[in-house]
Simulated assay, not measured.
Amino acid sequence: MSLPDAVRIREIAPRLTFQDHAVPTDVKIELVRRLIDAGVRAFELSSFVRPDLVPGLADAAEVFARVPRVPGLSLGCCVANLRGLARAVDAGADTAHFLLSADEEFARANIGRSTQDSMRELERMAAYAADRNIVLGTYVIFAWGGPTGPPRTGADLEPLARGLLDIGVDRWILADSSGYAAPPQMCELVTAALAHVPPGNLTVQVHDDRGMGLAALLPLLELGIHDIDTSLAGSGGHPAMPGIQGGGLCTEDAVQLLERSGVDTGIDLPRLIETANWLTGEVGVPGEGFVRHTGPILSTAQPGTPLSFTW
């Protein structure tokens, strides 16, 4: 098994969790501050979308304004249209990713337009972003299938991939939004994407709705993917999918697996676990995962480190 020396874990809980659980802005800033203290340097911080559709993220501009800046910090967001992109630019976002859904039904429920209409909007946004200080990419939500439909394959990705390149958008987040992919399916679709864009332009957002997310992590790294999206305590959801599990792969579980595999994340695992326990306890969001319940495996450099258990 050939793995990289290091990967970048991007923390998406500030967007994914709070779009489904409304909390005061102060709580969001405290979460990000704790994660920065734990060594996290890449975030999906919020979404610039219609507040009537996603009221939990109506404070996106304030969150960007109040997050403490440290060296190496990268702050990203989601956007649904040109107006949202302009707001992201004004807020100082480093990156913005358009919410493009591979599932037509969800596309209409989420942003009120079809996938084809979304592509036309993204083309206008690409022209706008070209001479502004922001990197514009796109999600492909439900890339592997879902939320209710059948699985998707690399062949299903081809028309979207060609369309995106035609309009000059070559930075993609492939999201397994419903947790459909076991390692073979994960690798098959990512390999198809890599025929169009280099590994450095591709982020994979791993979800664990069906318990397969952690198994897919190391095979992704073997393919050359170094950018992975995860969510603290596996938290998250979406107001367009009420009552449906929608969290990402647990960040703390991913970090432990990577550390035990010799891959550096730059993240302090005990501090990360403390923050995951704070999020589930103080905010009351549902929490998933393993390592925050059992504690991390101690290294020889950490004798006697106290463990904090959550049951």
Rank of each mutant, 00 (worst) to 15 (best):
E282M: 09
V206L: 13
P150H: 07
G295Q: 11
L194D: 05
V27Q: 00
A215N: 10
M119W: 02
F142N: 04
E222N: 05
A155E: 12
V285R: 01
L223G: 01
V49H: 03
L221W: 09
V54N: 00
K28R: 14
I111W: 01
Q245K: 15
Q302E: 15
D103Q: 05
L174P: 07
G39F: 11
A88S: 04
R33Y: 05
A91H: 00
V23I: 06
L157P: 04
A301L: 13
P198Q: 03
H238K: 07
G284E: 11
R83E: 12
H226K: 13
R50W: 10
V79D: 09
L45Q: 06
G211D: 06
V169Q: 10
H226N: 13
L73V: 01
I225A: 14
G72W: 06
G72K: 04
G168H: 14
V204R: 11
E105I: 14
L31T: 09
V49L: 00
E188P: 06
R41T: 11
P151N: 10
I267K: 02
L249R: 14
A181L: 10
A240V: 10
I167T: 08
G236E: 03
M241T: 10
R41Y: 01
M212E: 12
S46A: 04
R10L: 14
W172G: 07
A127S: 09
D5P: 08
R83V: 05
M125F: 11
D90A: 15
L165C: 12
P71A: 07
G168R: 14
N277F: 02
P286F: 15
G237Q: 10
I228G: 04
A88R: 00
T251E: 08
S299P: 13
S74V: 14
E252C: 03
L232M: 00
I225V: 14
A161K: 04
L35T: 06
R260K: 12
V169N: 10
